[in-house]
Design a protein around this nucleic acid. Structure first.
Lengths: 164, 164
DNA sequence: CGTGTATTGTTGACTACGCAAACAACACTG
DNA sequence: CAGTGTTGTTTGCGTAGTCAACAATACACG
């Protein structure tokens, strides 16, 4: 199927590099498509959507901002700014921690849950379309598994954070 | 169709969603780490590096800017801005097309090739470290293959661009 | 020819993020 | 209980990217 060695050789790379490059491109392509959709139909960024999703998974629909940052692989400042938007839209609200006043929780509001629900329908559907158009069911699972095993933090970051 | 039994189910997601989320996170984690390195040691963005790499693969070390954009999954304006930087650093230069004066080629300079060479050494090494620390050889190839099959363009984009 | 239409590339205004610094609240130490 | 370090959050500034509007060229067809 693929041409072996033409004058230009896409295949001369090591598998690592190939995997990485493809990861970059796949990410650009998928987020490009999906974020446009999410933005247009619901006014949400992909990260904003993921934030709502993670909050919704917590028992009390709230999370420390730091944890949210780590979970999304964003810096704390990124989270602050993103939540600014979501708070402005009334999808998330702040909640204090009684025992530690440094901490501010981000809590999903009812409107936020509704928004997540609405956005999720089309978003999940789009994701499914994209993936199922390209890969078989088992392949999708295999892909998810492999991606899951890539390291999420700096290796020099001491802890192995079982908290996830 | 999907979902709402929420209390706390990270694993209740469909494989598509799981794959997508993991793709997002893996991308954020890897680019975060690798781009910091590339930036610090060589003053290059990941995309800038990839651009140099692609130019270096062309026979005459040059590419139409539009093609470069498509290849990197960037907008034309993004390419203009990125190349502004690379031109300023003398790593890339402009070249005209005699037959079509709309076209401007981006051409790798000698300095650009040298930079690519230097940056490539550490960059490729880092990539290898990251991937080999997490996956076995065959798994890396499998991952690359799966990622390769994800669609890179909008499906409503008519052509299947065999040009790649 | 001239006139629409598509393609190539650039620019201005904006967004989303990171980094570093600042700051507030806590936690330990003596 | 003052001093020092650590953690959580926000803020100023820089950067990389997008989109919309544009100019210039190419082409197709009356």
């Amino acid at each position: 199927m693929s041409t072996q060695l033409s004058t230009k050789q896409a295949s001369r790379q090591s598998p690592h590099t190939r995997a990485f490059t493809r990861l970059l491109r796949a990410h650009a392509a998928l987020t490009g498509r999906l974020s446009a959709e999410l933005q247009e139909e619901h006014g949400l960024t992909i990260n904003a959507y993921e934030a709502l999703l993670r909050l919704s998974r917590e028992e009390d629909s709230q999370m420390k901002r730091v944890d949210l940052a780590r979970s999304l692989i964003l810096t704390p400042s990124g989270v602050t700014r993103m939540l600014d938007g979501l708070e402005g839209a009334g999808l998330v609200e702040r909640a204090e921690c009684p025992s530690d006043r440094r901490i501010v929780y981000a809590r999903l509001t009812e409107a936020g849950r509704a928004k997540l629900d609405a956005a999720g329908k089309s978003h999940v559907e789009s994701i499914r379309t994209v993936f199922e158009g390209a890969l078989s069911g088992p392949e999708i699972e295999r892909l998810a598994d492999l991606l899951e095993r890539l390291p999420l933090a700096d290796s020099d970051d001491a802890a192995c954070d079982a908290a996830d």
